[in-house]
Structures are given as structure tokens and as C-alpha cells.
Design a protein around this nucleic acid. Sequence first.
DNA 1: GAAAATAAGTCAACATGGCTGACATAATTA
DNA 2: TAATTATGTCAGCCATGTTGACTTATTTTC
Lengths: 178, 178
Amino acid sequence: MADIINKDAAAPRSDLQETTPDQEEPPHALVELIELLFFAYRDFTNDPDTILDEIGFGRAHHRVLHFVNHYPGLRVADLLDILKITKQSLARVLKQLVDEGMIEQRPGPSDRRERRLFSTQRGQKLARRLMEPQLHRINKALKLSGMESEEISRKLLYNMINTHEHEAIEELFSRQRS
Amino acid sequence: MADIINKDAAAPRSDLQETTPDQEEPPHALVELIELLFFAYRDFTNDPDTILDEIGFGRAHHRVLHFVNHYPGLRVADLLDILKITKQSLARVLKQLVDEGMIEQRPGPSDRRERRLFSTQRGQKLARRLMEPQLHRINKALKLSGMESEEISRKLLYNMINTHEHEAIEELFSRQRS
DNA sequence: GAAAATAAGTCAACATGGCTGACATAATTA
DNA sequence: TAATTATGTCAGCCATGTTGACTTATTTTC
């Protein structure tokens, strides 16, 4: 009687997952890996937030500044492809970065419709400052995870990315080695 | 003359990063690892979006449902600690999940102020459906990255998480093995 | 050389999911 | 009984994503 009125956690109900119908339960180890990825990314992206708050920028500004700084001369279209956001979303933060003197735009050398993007010295300085705690976090984690961890995790992350993006990423990475 | 009026990408300017002042350039390999993490997470979180759109939920609903489903009996306070969001942000999506019959709340067995959270059968079914493409993606990536990749990446991700969170995560993980 | 296609920008409106602050309720603990 | 705790709720704000419609400058194509 009291059980029905007062149904608390000690009194299971029929439609709850507790009574586990358990068709094909997913492997715990993999589920935990997913959760670890969530926690790691959560803390990783939190690193630059304090700095960003000080200067009135957000994570969106950080992402744009990072890629422009690391790949000077990037076009707007490249950035859209990298970030997978719309032109309008990008425009909002890009405009602010240009206004604040972090990024400069110049017409493309062969096609003058293009706006090639470059970080200024201030932009570069900020980009590095924002990346610093993230590099530190990764470095620390790699050291604690053994010699092979850098190569293995590089492979794993690469293989987690949509296959049809692989070519674009190879090309992006090759830019900055040239 | 034309250079000054028409400054294009072929005509470098003094305040641009291009002229690299290069104090302590960060190591390319690590920067690429950061970028791979961004790309991998971008695609990973995108997996469930199609399903979520169909039923009018967002990523926030997914996260809540996932943790409640995987750790039945979680308290609201636990969830806040896991997600690192405010009570008000959680309330918004939790209410919808309860209204849609995905999650049920019951008073705690010893402390009746608590609301213990449980996924319903529908909730469990949805949680699994949402996780399925993500599990598939990770599984595929692990297979392509060699035997050790699961153990190593588990270590790496764990070591990327703030140290002061480690205890809470151990405890969380132990819940569902008991 | 005119027309079509492309790269980029812009305006407006809207959705999602964070946030703060203030306050309410019920139950437990001191 | 009073204080503390767990949770909920109202209201409003902000960052950052979306769609759709339209403009401008430049290049490419016919």
C-alpha cells in the first residue's frame, strides 16, 4: 500500500530501465571511453575560457583565430569547411576579430574575389596564449600515457574523423609544412 | 605605388604574422593533435544529430539521457557535477525528457529530498539508438589504430581530465560495475 | 562583350543551450 | 525550532548556431 502511494527508489516500477530488457547491451569499456572523451574535451575546451572572458571573446573567436594563425592565407571558404558552420555565423566573429586588429584580410593574389586571412602580431600573440594551457594539458597527458601514446592517439583521432574529410585534412596539414 | 593602394596577398605588411617574430613556436605535431581532436569531436558529436532532429531534442537532451541511462539512480546534483552546467540549464532539458516519458524521477530511498533519475524503457531505447553510431565510429577507429589503441587512448583521455575530477570519475565508473 | 557562376558580405529573424539572480518548497540536520 | 540542503522555478540575458533572401565584386563561360 505505502509502496504504491510513496513509490520511491526502493520500489521499482515496471516501465523503468531498471528491470533491464537488455537486448544487446553495449560494451561498458567502450561506453566509458565515450564518457572519457566527453570529460576530456569538456576540460580541454575550458582551458582558454578565463583568458577569453577577459578580452570579451568567446570560443568561436578562439577557433577562428587558431586556424587563421596556424594556416596564414586561409580563405573564408576554407574556414567554413573546417569549422562546419555557416557563412553568417563565421562573419559575426570574424568581423570582431578584424575590428579588434587580430586578423587582417587581403584580396587573393590570383583571384581578387577571395579574402585571404592573416593573423596580425597581436593575433598571433593571443592565439599562442590561448593555446598554451591546451598544449600543456596534452603534453602532460602524453607523458603520463607512455611513449607510443602520441602516435597512437594521432591515429585514433584521425580514424575517428569522417573518411571523406581525410583528404582535406591532409591538404591542410601539408600547407604549413611548406 | 600600386602596392600601397592595392595591397594584396603578394604584398606583405609589417604587422602581419607572416613576418614571423617566432618567439618559441609551438611544436607542429602537438598543434595538429589539437586540431585532430577538434575534427574528431566535431564529427563524433554530429552523429546523433539526425536522430535528435527527428524527435525535437538537442545535444543537451542527449547528454542528460545518456548519463541517466548509464547510471540509473543518479541524483540531480550528480548530473550537474558531470555536465558542469547550472541547475537552470539542466532543468530545462530534464523537464522535457520527463514530459516525453524518457526519464522518471523518484524520491531517494534514504533522503527524500533527492530526486533519483531513471530512464524508462523508451528512454533506454532512445539512448542506445543515439549511442549506436558513436560506438560504431569508435569501434572502427580502434580497429584501424591497432591493438593497444583502446588501452592507450583510455589512459590519454583520463590523463587529459582535470586531476581533481579523477576521484569522481572513478566513483562514477564503479557504480555501474556493482 | 554579355551572361552566368563564384567568393564574399549583409540583413533579419529565429533556436539552442549556456549564464546570473532571486526566490520557493520540502526534507533533513543541528 | 532553526539552519541547512536538494531541488525547482521565474525572468531575462548572452553566445553562437540556423535559414532565407539579397547585394557586390570578380572571374569564367558562351
